Amino acid sequence: MPESKHGDVVKEDQNTVASGALKAGSLTAPQRRWLLKGLDQPGGKLPLFDGNGREIPARTIRACIEAGWAEPWFSNPIKPDWLVCKLTPAAVEVLSASQNRKRS
């Protein structure tokens, strides 16, 4: 049975919507703080813990994944419930641009 291309179209639409939402500033303050930390890390790796050693809330992580701003990177065999994520290319582009505007 041939595979439908509909899934690819939906995926592209979701990425476009997520990118537009990020540009529109629909990020919450905790989401923005968490995503900005990935800009300074190799591969855009996002932290599991905040600066005070507290775990980043799973709700924040899942919301960013669903919006297309972060993506799961790999599974942690020791802690399978931890979501190890990295920034998406679209998020890197938009966050970098917003950081450059603030510095100007």
Rank of each mutant, 00 (worst) to 15 (best):
V9M: 07
T60D: 15
N15G: 15
P30Q: 03
T28G: 12
A97T: 04
P72T: 14
G43M: 07
L95G: 06
V84D: 02
Q31A: 14
F49N: 03
A21H: 08
K11C: 05
D8C: 11
G51L: 15
E93V: 10
P30G: 02
A24N: 05
F49A: 00
A63Y: 01
L95Q: 07
F74P: 00
D50G: 10
L87N: 06
Q31L: 08
W34T: 13
G68R: 02
T88E: 01
H6T: 13
N15Q: 14
T88G: 01
V17S: 00
W34R: 14
L83W: 15
G44Q: 08
K11M: 09
K79I: 15
R59C: 00
S26C: 04
K23F: 02
S98N: 13
R32S: 14
C85M: 03
P89C: 08
K86R: 15
R32L: 11
S98F: 04
S98M: 12
G20V: 00
R59P: 00
L22S: 07
G20D: 05
A18R: 03
A91M: 03
R59N: 07
L83H: 13
A29H: 03
C85V: 00
K23Y: 02
G7S: 12
G43R: 10
R101V: 11
K5V: 07
F74T: 09
P89T: 12
S75A: 14
T16H: 07
S75M: 10
A18Q: 03
D40A: 12
K11P: 01
P57C: 00
Q14P: 00
L35G: 03
A90Q: 04
K102N: 13
Q41N: 09
V9N: 03
T16C: 02
